[in-house]
Each structure stands twice: as C-alpha cells, then as structure tokens.
C-alpha cells in the first residue's frame, strides 16, 4: 500500500505514456479533479478505479483531449495535451484505441465495415488487404463468423468485442477501456478480461482500464490507482491496495455499503422529517 504521494523507483521518461500532474478540472461549477496525479507506463495495464461519479470517464476525456484541464499538467507521450492543435490531437488519436462502455459501434454499417472503418478513413490500402486485416482482428476477438451481422444483432458482450477489434485495427500504442465490464454476463466478462490481457501481451500495448469492478481488475492490472473526491487516494499493485489503507480504500476494496462514502444521500434528520408531516420531502435545514 502506498500513499498518493508515493513515487515508484525512478522511471525512464520514455516509459511514461500518460502523466497527470496536479490536474484540476471542474464542469459547470462542480469540481471533478483537485490535484490528480497519476502515471501510465509503457507495456503495462494501469487500472483507474473509484466509486461511481468520481470522474473516471472524465479522466479519459482529458487524456484523449476531448476536454482540457483547468490547471496542472497532463502529458501523453511527453506532449502537453493543452498545447496540441486540432490536427495534432487527431494525429495523437490515431495512435490510440478506445473501447467505449456500450461499444459505440456505428449502427448503420455491419460488423466488418465497423472494423474496417478506421482503415478506410486513414489508409488507402487495397481492398483485399483491408479484408485480411479486418478478418484477422475479428478472429482475434473470436467473431470472424459475425462479420456480416449488423450491430443491432449483437449481444452486449459481442458488441464490446467488435469494438475492441475496431480499437486495435490501426495497431495503436495505447488502448483505453471505459468501464469494459459493465452489464456483462460472467462468460462475456471472462472473455473481455482475457482479451484485455492478451492484447496487452501480444501487441505490446499500453492499456488504461477505467472501472469500478475491483476483483476483475485485480486479476489483470499491473498498476492501480484509486480515485476519490477528485484525487488519487491510493496507488500501487491491486494486491497492495487490497492489503489495507485508509477507510475509504478499505470500503471500496471490500465493497462495504456504508463508510466514508455514505449509504444515504445527504438528507435532513430522519426522525425530524417524519415527525414534521407538513415539511415537503427534501426540505430541511
């Protein structure tokens, strides 16, 4: 178990793919990050965990330059994302793959065309080569036989596997997963877990997995960060995180319904509200 201020052994700068240093970010007056610091290292699977609503997906939006920090420094491959022009942002994204929570497949084209989409947009490869690449990627996720199905015909797990094939079709260096385990049955979940691990090893990728599924991440993550209230409250290997720490880390890792993150949404005193029949729900001091 390490504190947020923990710094690992000196790393080569080239090993750091994503680095957030004291990042502050707010949306509509609501503070999301207040001094977030974390790193994702080359060739490793970095897990970013935290209770719902802590801004895990927002972190991915910052990394992919869909939004920019209010202050602090966020670098991807050594480049500060706030200084990138739109052309450079697009160039950066061609080196990334992203797996969305719901797959985000294009619904008006079939599975094959979905996977071929980035190739057709960014390369002028001949059709036979595109076909071979797409079938190779679909084979890797076990869905070569589903190439001509439409997205509406896929189950949730299959859609996510197709999205994974699409995310790796351009051979990215960084693969980002946004809540990849949500809503999956145990078999589909096991498949996705195995694929994340396999992709990282076989393709030499760097992976960032954002999720609140602690036990799934424990099995695949090399490094883990736990975010709460806008900052990293614990970091280390999943085992180190599980070994103990502050009350909030313990509550999160054990899944306790009550603790530093309360079961009840803030409300006036229960007894007083029940006795005060005239007061409308939610009214109180």
């Amino acid at each position: 178990m390490t504190s947020p201020e923990h710094r690992a052994a000196p790393e080569a700068a080239s090993d750091i793919v994503v680095a957030a240093e004291d990042v502050h970010f707010a949306i509509g007056g609501r503070r999301i990050f207040s001094g977030l610091t974390l790193r994702a290292r080359r060739g490793r699977i970095t897990a970013v965990m935290g209770p719902s609503g802590t801004g895990k997906t927002t972190l991915l939006r910052l990394i992919t330059a869909q939004a920019y920090p209010d202050s602090g420094r966020l670098t991807v491959w050594g480049r500060d994302v706030t200084t990138l022009r739109s052309r450079e942002v697009f160039a950066m994204r061609t080196r990334m793959g992203m797996l969305f929570q719901n797959g985000a497949l294009l619904t008006d084209i079939d599975v094959f065309e979905n996977v071929a989409f980035p190739l057709r947009e960014h390369t002028s490869l001949p059709e036979p080569l595109i076909r071979d690449i797409v079938l190779t990627k679909l084979h890797a996720v076990g869905l070569r036989g589903a190439a001509r199905l439409m997205p509406a015909e896929l189950s949730g797990g299959m859609a996510r596997r197709v999205a994974l094939a699409r995310a790796i079709v351009m051979d990215p260096e960084l693969l980002i997963y946004d809540e990849p385990f949500v809503g999956l049955d145990p078999i589909a979940l096991g498949v996705i877990l195995r694929l994340i691990q396999k992709m990282n090893e076989a393709l030499g990728l760097t992976s960032i997995v954002v999720s609140h599924d602690v036990h799934e991440l424990e099995t695949i993550a090399d490094d883990s960060y736990l975010i709460s209230e806008g900052r990293v409250v614990a970091s280390g290997t999943p085992q180190e995180l599980g070994a103990g720490g502050s009350p909030i880390v313990q509550q999160f890792m054990s899944g306790s319904p009550d603790g530093p993150v309360p079961f009840h949404y803030p409300a006036p005193d229960y007894a007083a509200e029940l006795l005060d029949g005239a007061a409308a729900p939610g009214e109180g001091p």
């Binding site: 994204r93 990334m96 992203m98 969305f100 985000a104 497949l105 947009e121 960014h122 699409r166």
Partner: peptide, 16 residues
C-alpha cells in the same frame, strides 16, 4: 441517437 450512443465521440476518437 448517434450522439446518445457515443457514436460521434467514437468517430472523434478514431480521428474522423
């Protein structure tokens, strides 16, 4: 609906 299902964001992420 494409916006709601992240299809437009996915395109941006594919640099399209």
């Amino acid at each position: 609906m494409m916006r709601a299902t992240d299809q437009l964001t996915a395109m941006e992420m594919m640099a399209v």
